[in-house]
């Protein structure tokens, strides 16, 4: 009955490998993290134009990923885009009140993400606060249009 033991072992390894593979796909490929919800806090930011920003896009600070875009919705009071950011809990109470948020693009055609940079205000942002100072996405068509109209007026 040695052969059947080997077979059982083989099937067991096969199934284990499958499950490990799924974990790999989850963690390494789709970037899931096992963070408890309490470990993060939310901020809001209004942008005049978000371009191609999508939910789950990265939020970075000096190039380091510190959170993700949780949701994007239309703010019907101002008719601009309200972006809800989910940031690492470590940063709660550390970001100054005049922190700025900008929508940046990785490369010419790459993914869009949000870059934060802190200011000098001693007061800090608490969970649920809104970032006032924002910079919208650069829309290529608008840039070209500006450039062309400048040329014409010159």
């Amino acid at each position: 009955m040695k052969r059947s033991k080997m077979m059982e072992l083989g099937v067991g390894l096969f199934m284990l490998a499958g499950i490990l593979g799924l974990v790999f796909l989850g963690l390494r490929v789709s970037g899931l993290t096992f963070q408890a919800p309490g470990d993060s806090f939310r901020l809001e930011a209004n942008f005049a134009n978000i371009g191609g920003l999508k939910p789950r896009a990265r939020v970075t600070m000096a190039g380091v990923t510190v959170g993700r875009v949780a949701a994007i919705e239309l703010d019907t009071d101002w008719y601009d885009a309200r972006v809800i950011l989910e940031l690492d809990g470590d940063l709660e109470g550390r970001l100054s009140r005049d922190t700025t948020a900008a929508i940046l693009t990785a490369g010419l055609l790459g993914e869009q993400y949000i870059g934060l940079s802190v200011g000098g205000d001693p007061e800090t942002l608490a969970a649920g606060d809104t970032i006032r100072d924002t910079q919208s996405a650069i829309v290529l068509e608008e840039l070209i249009q500006q450039f062309v109209s400048n040329m014409v007026s010159d």
């Binding site: 796909l25 490929v29 789709s30 790459g110 993914e111 993400y113």
Partner: peptide, 12 residues
């Protein structure tokens, strides 16, 4: 880029 664009439920 992979992690930013692959959704676990949606794609995997």
């Amino acid at each position: 880029n992979m992690q930013a664009s692959v959704a676990f439920i949606g794609d995997v």
